[in-house]
Amino acid sequence: MIQSLRQIKSKIRNIENVRKVTHAMEMIATAKFKTIENQVLISRQYLAKVEELLYNLLAHRGALNLPLLNRRDNQDKIILCVIASDTGLCSTYNSDMFCCVEDYIRQEGSKTIEVVAVGKKAFNYFKKRNLKIRESFLEFHGRYSEGIACQILNILIEYFVCGDIDSVVLAYTHFETASRHKVKLEKLFPIEAREQEMHFMLFEPDVQKITEDLIPVFVFNKIKTILLESFASEHASRMMAMGEATENARGLLEDMILLRNKVRQANITNEILEISSTAEALR
């Protein structure tokens, strides 16, 4: 036989261990995904309302002069905020993201692009690629908290309002279903009005004041929603990837057990042959 029984047995043990690990990771990802999934849906619904309200207001703009609405004449300096994961083993979650970002960078070739990296994978990738990283946020591990969103938001606002940056673009993974997500790039700042019909409307106290109050709510919830969407996609990808790995390990295990049994049988047959032939010889 090519492999000894002992080798096969140790291989089976190894595969079993790997299967246990991937299965555990699948369960953890599932649990995290379940808790975040609901938050995504609620947050998305809330954001949609805020967005609708904001665009209604912006359609009525008079002489609105707010820092976050300020369009710059030249759009040369872009901050790209890329949200990826801290750890690997989540299928194509990170590589899809970097693929889309590369496309974007190629499109905007002439402009200066700097990166705000969320997640270790993003940080490492852009470091290797020699793109300037302005700021990085690491070690979130797909756990959302208000603090994280505030930190990221404050940095982005600071760059846009006080700095020399002309626009801020977010790259995140839009969560559709557990097995379907899509990378999206969206401009965050400057906030631009959408083309839409202007309806007659009353305002209390006035457009300027309401817009001033609404914009912080909008940007905060925007960041919150995209973080939640990305984290949910990350957990979902990991869940699927680990599920598949567990399944593969199970298949491998079955083959190995079959092989082990065959080898064992062959050994027994051999031994019987040996015994019977020796007995024959001794007679």
Binding site: L53, N56, L57, H199, F200, M201, L202, F203, E204, P205, K209, I210, D213
Partner: peptide, 19 residues
């Protein structure tokens, strides 16, 4: 409780955005 004082709303109210 709107920004300028309590505000009552019934059906067919005119379009309004209030703080």
């Amino acid at each position: 409780p709107a920004a300028l004082g309590y505000l009552g709303i019934l059906a067919d109210h005119a379009p309004l955005i209030a703080g």
